[in-house]
């Protein structure tokens, strides 16, 4: 019987046509791939990129909301927001640990985030100037994340799928608290309602961009679908999100900032769906390339947190080492 360490195992594969075909056959049979299974290098690389981007998004995503914890208007809102931001930190951890099963180290991933080499969701490069932004984020940003994440629970890579199941269980509260917040603003004074509408105006389009480039422009989509890493295309998920979210806005008396938004009977194979306006892809790529409103602030905040935490990490290691030495000496 052969054994293998979980970390640092030799993962090289001979990528013969037979090997690739056998791998694809496993995927087609809905078999899950587990860390020690042979897999094409490109499958591994795609997953590392996807999972680490997702992990970074959870972590950077704590910043725009964290901005409001001390200023939440009531204790009820404060505990909700605190609990949500805490969950996002946990989501980052589940995802980093899923990425680590593929042979990358946490240090490496962290460095890629801090040096700007790794990407995270462009949505977190928008600012949160008003309290209503907290409602809009929970409702729209977490709502869009859920659309993306639910199919990922069936992703072909076992550890990612299992991490997503845990994440999805926790996300429902995130969206509901945001929508509840928006509802109470929408039912409030004129100013409160205007604040809710203004937040919706600013967050709607960036939320649609969260699903990524259009299928016709997406460089990674086809292969990820074939490998069943992704189950739906960017445009399919975006459409589902629009169809689910527009009635939620109408119900609380808010409207999407899109003049072209119209119900189309013939969409979704005759079930109907919304036509919507053109997304500003220039804006999207500007933000992805680092020129969004908050890109610099976000990375600076992460760098500062990393640098400020250096003495804590070192002290913890020094303490552990000292304890070990004492134990060995005793």
């Amino acid at each position: 019987m052969y054994s293998q360490g979980l970390i640092g195992a030799n993962t090289e594969t001979q990528e013969t046509p037979e090997f690739l075909a056998a791998f694809q056959a496993r995927i087609d049979a809905e078999e899950k791939i587990e860390p020690n299974d042979p897999m094409p290098a490109a499958y591994r690389k795609t997953l590392i990129r996807m999972i680490s981007q997702h992990a970074h998004s959870e972590i950077v995503g704590m910043l725009p909301e964290g901005n409001w914890i001390t200023r939440a208007p009531t204790l009820r809102r404060k505990v909700a927001l605190l609990a949500k931001v805490q969950d996002e930190g946990g989501h980052g951890l589940y995802l980093y640990s899923a990425a680590e099963t593929l042979g990358v180290s946490r240090e490496q991933l962290t460095q890629e985030l801090l040096t700007g080499k790794a990407k995270y969701s462009s949505i977190f490069n928008y600012p949160t100037p008003t309290w209503a932004d907290i409602g809009a984020i929970g409702w729209l940003v977490d709502g869009a994340a859920i659309m993306n994440q639910v199919p990922l629970c069936r992703c072909s890579y076992g550890p990612y799928a299992r991490a997503m199941i845990r994440v999805c269980k926790e996300e429902s509260f995130h969206q509901r608290q945001g929508y509840e917040l928006m509802t109470s603003l929408a039912e409030g004074t004129e100013e409160q309602k205007a604040m809710a509408q203004d937040a919706l105006n600013r967050w709607w389009w960036p939320s649609l961009m969260m699903f990524g480039p259009s299928d016709s422009d997406s460089q990674h989509s086809d292969q990820s679908m074939a490998w069943k890493i992704k189950r739906f295309t960017n445009d399919e998920l975006r459409q589902k999100f629009v169809d689910a979210t527009v009635p939620q806005a109408e119900l609380i008396g808010l409207s999407m900032p899109d003049e072209k938004l119209t119900w189309n009977e013939s969409k979704n194979n005759g079930q109907g769906g919304y036509d919507f306006g053109e997304i500003d892809w220039d804006e999207f790529w500007q933000v992805v390339k680092g020129h969004g409103m908050m890109n610099k602030d976000r990375i600076n905040a992460k760098r500062k947190a990393w640098d400020d935490g250096a003495w804590v990490r070192q002290a913890a290691l020094a303490h552990a080492e000292k304890q070990n030495q004492r134990k060995a000496a005793a």
Partner: peptide, 19 residues
């Protein structure tokens, strides 16, 4: 006692259905 970590803690209109 941290019931606010659960979805059922939040009141949203019934018409929304599952969220």
């Amino acid at each position: 006692d941290k019931i606010y970590r659960h979805p059922s803690f939040y009141d949203i209109p019934d018409e929304v259905g599952h969220m």
